[in-house]
Design a protein around this nucleic acid. Structure first.
Lengths: 335, 335
DNA sequence: TTGAAAGCGCTAACAA
DNA sequence: TTGTTAGCGCTTTCAA
């Protein structure tokens, strides 16, 4: 009959007592690091199994200052880009031996700040942070915690960026190469630098080698606002670069609902390559974000910062990853 | 000049020293519970602010046995149902004063087990668990941690269920009421009880008041397998109940790609009400899951278990929530 | 109202 | 190889 009070979760001490060894031996056996005789270890482990011993990571974390956990903050899980990114980051974290938690900041800056603080308080070893906007809501809370900002840039933090100017150029290049000259742009909300960049990149090239039919802005939604609707039906563009797939899908639907065939009458190029893009009719040509690259770089950057306690004030790495064109059927090759 | 070594995160001790008070007073001030003079507290708080003091929740959790955090495990974040559920659960948790972390078990039972264990080890106060299948992968790890199982049932755990038999009946009722008599069912993977139930519920009613044209199974995907394709084009049904929206969307597309108009030639009723359902052409009639109810009940059940240390062996609550029909345009009312 | 001090469960020197 | 022991940062009882 075990001496362990059955209503309490067994501790290392219980385990040691139960197995008739010292605390240290029990700890070594459980962590597999110190030196314990092979049979001692086996015995301890079997007792652990029997009494249902589990590490108390809080205590362990307190002692070692490491919790083996990372947090990922994303602004909106219902935007299909983020689950995809999250899975990639989860995988990368797992490969590096970390357990990753996800927090949805729900587009709410107060929540974002609270989540950042909570992460720090709980002692996660690092935070991969996809900010709601290009704004530092951290209020100094992150001073001593490894952080890497994803996709955006927040002054003072390492970041994994995407070369959006280049991405915009890739988009424009594709349309131009397909023979289009009058090209319109439907931008997403421009308070986000990455959005401005991709549109600026595209616009520069379009103006250089063709003509910008229009450049309008629309919310991050498949519902097109009136001016965007007007641009599509009356803007005179043979091709439209919609700087986000959700908007592109909205444009596609709007065009079709108004008697325009895609791509025969108007070509549409999206951006993001969300799962839905492949399944629209016609399948949407789009620009794919280097999700895997971002995930890899993010975890490796975090790993570096965690390894090297405080070089945070040292050179802040900003890694740039590149996008790729995914040609499908929504862009027409002009004769 | 503060005496706090600047490269280390300030501790309560640092705060107490810096403010010239005892550890206890500092703790009281920070937590707002013990008794401290008004000015003492204000002073301590301002010093805390200045030196950037933050609680170390790991230490706090170790002492109190409570971390103020909950974990939510879901099987697949790229299935749009889960982000929606996650957001609802996050909100409910927040309203109850908890911080919630999300873990995607990625349909992998080994990962699920590891996540469960990690949650327990980290000392979360409770776990809301949406299992991959109706299978207990917990390996006894959860013995002393409050747990509530979502949507499925796992022996030995409290659960928030959905009355799927009833849901299937609601689906069949809708089709029958619209005048359909030859009705087919495309089921999802039937190793999941909830899937069997909704189909069984529908089938019973269909057989009673009409005729079952076919009942086939398909993976949880918009890609239809050959037998499902054949059933749609050659099964002779005027209406199809696809027991998951993703499958319904696949059926819709397949039908349309093969010259069948929806709902003129064939009606399609889905299940889940994922965001995409509203945006398909035609908008998909479907059955809505009571996400908010599930979230509320889950958090409240967890709250009860956390409050009452160990009534776990007591009566296991199984709460049942009800679904609702969301009529849109993919079901035709027969003359 | 304030402070001293005892641990929470664990790790890692260090000693044996 | 094994055991003893000093804390990690915090809360909280108890005494002042």
């Amino acid at each position: 009959m075990p001496n362990t009070p059955s209503n309490r979760r067994p501790t290392l001490k219980d385990l040691a007592r139960e197995a008739g060894v010292s605390l240290a031996s029990a700890s070594y056996a459980v962590n597999g690091n110190g030196s314990v005789g092979e049979q001692t270890r086996a015995h301890i482990l079997s007792v652990a199994q029997r009494i249902g011993y589990r590490q108390n990571s809080a205590a362990r974390a307190m002692k070692t200052g490491r919790s083996g956990t990372l947090a990922l903050l994303v602004p909106d899980l219902t935007n299909p880009f983020f689950p995809a990114l999250a899975q990639a980051v989860f995988r990368a974290a797992r490969a590096a031996g970390y357990t990753m938690f996800l927090i949805d900041t729900e587009g709410n800056e107060a929540l974002e700040q609270a989540a950042l603080a909570k992460g720090v308080d709980l002692g996660v070893d690092g935070i991969a942070w996809f900010p709601i906007r290009d704004k530092d809501t951290s209020a100094g809370v992150l001073a001593r915690t490894p952080v890497v900002v994803l996709d955006r840039t927040v002054p003072g933090y390492a970041a994994i960026g995407i070369d959006y100017l280049d991405a915009g150029r890739i988009a424009a290049r594709h349309l131009l190469d397909a023979g289009h000259r009058r090209i319109g742009i439907i931008s997403g909300p421009t308070d986000i630098a990455s959005m401005r960049d991709r549109c600026d990149g595209a616009e520069a090239l379009i103006c250089g080698e063709g003509a910008l039919a229009f450049r309008v802005e629309n919310a991050f939604s498949t519902d097109l606002e009136p001016h965007a609707q007007a641009a599509i039906t009356g803007g005179g563009a043979t091709a439209v670069f919609a700087a986000a797939d959700v908007i592109a899908i909205g444009a596609l639907r709007y065009a079709q609902a108004n008697g325009l065939r895609v791509p025969e009458d108007v070509s549409i190029l999206g951006f993001d390559d969300i799962p839905l893009a492949e399944q629209s009719l016609p399948p949407l040509s789009t620009i794919e974000l280097p999700i895997e690259d971002i995930a890899q770089h993010a975890i490796s950057e975090l790993g570096k910062q965690i390894g090297r306690p405080h070089a945070s004030s040292a050179a802040l790495r900003i890694v740039h990853t590149r996008t790729r064109l995914v040609p499908r059927l929504s862009v027409r090759l002009l004769g």
